[in-house]
């Protein structure tokens, strides 16, 4: 069961990153505006972060969806969500009303205070899903299982620690056989 929880966490979190990043790719200026609006980073690094963030988001999304380098992708995902939670909490506390720029947009926005609790709750939930994957990176339907199979392991066997169904059947049949043949 555990590997399937991980698969669900991977696909949900990865899809959010992929969508959030892809929306921002066409207009880097908008992304820079969103980063600047938090009034946290110095102006010298705002354009670089604004340019880089959407690419990093797409990359983390693809890694998680494909199940490639899952632990590293989940760690990056967890760190980013933690930063976003802190960022939104920070503007909230300072009384700055902005569009969080989570899915495009960004900059000053009236009525943003109402959105902050929902945005933080969403990001905390996704942060927890990411941490689960850091803890249990082996999941079903992941590229990691094909690429990084430990040496000598039967290719038919899933690499999440549970034997494949055929193997389990074989094992149980072998067990029965040995019992019946014993006098």
């Amino acid at each position: 069961m555990t590997p399937w929880i991980g698969t669900a966490a991977r696909l949900a979190t990865g899809a959010v990153w992929l969508v959030a990043g892809a929306i921002k790719l066409p207009d880097p200026y908008e992304s820079i505006t969103a980063v600047r609006a938090y009034e946290i980073l110095p102006e010298a690094v705002v354009p670089l972060v604004g340019h880089a963030l959407p690419i990093v988001e797409v990359a983390v999304g693809l890694l998680l969806i494909l199940g490639l380098l899952t632990r590293a992708g989940a760690m990056a995902s967890a760190v980013l969500f933690a930063i976003f939670v802190i960022g939104i909490a920070s503007v909230w506390m300072r009384g700055i009303e902005i569009d969080c720029g989570c899915f495009g947009g960004g900059g000053a926005k009236e009525g943003a205070f109402e959105e902050y609790p929902k945005e933080i709750a969403r990001d905390v939930a996704l942060l927890l899903a990411s941490l689960w994957l850091v803890w249990r990176p082996r999941t079903r339907l992941a590229l990691d299982n094909l690429l990084f199979r430990p040496l000598g392991r039967d290719p038919e066997r899933n690499d999440d620690g549970e034997p494949a169904q055929e193997e389990r059947l074989r094992q149980s049949r072998a067990g029965e056989g040995s019992h019946s043949s014993a006098p």
């Binding site: 790719l25 880097p28 340019h51 959407p54 990359a59 490639l68």
Partner: peptide, 18 residues
């Protein structure tokens, strides 16, 4: 090798955006 390819794609993507 996989890590290197992923990092190269990220850096290339950022460079393209800039």
């Amino acid at each position: 090798g996989v890590v290197a390819v992923v990092l190269a794609l990220i850096i290339g993507g950022v460079w393209f955006q800039i």
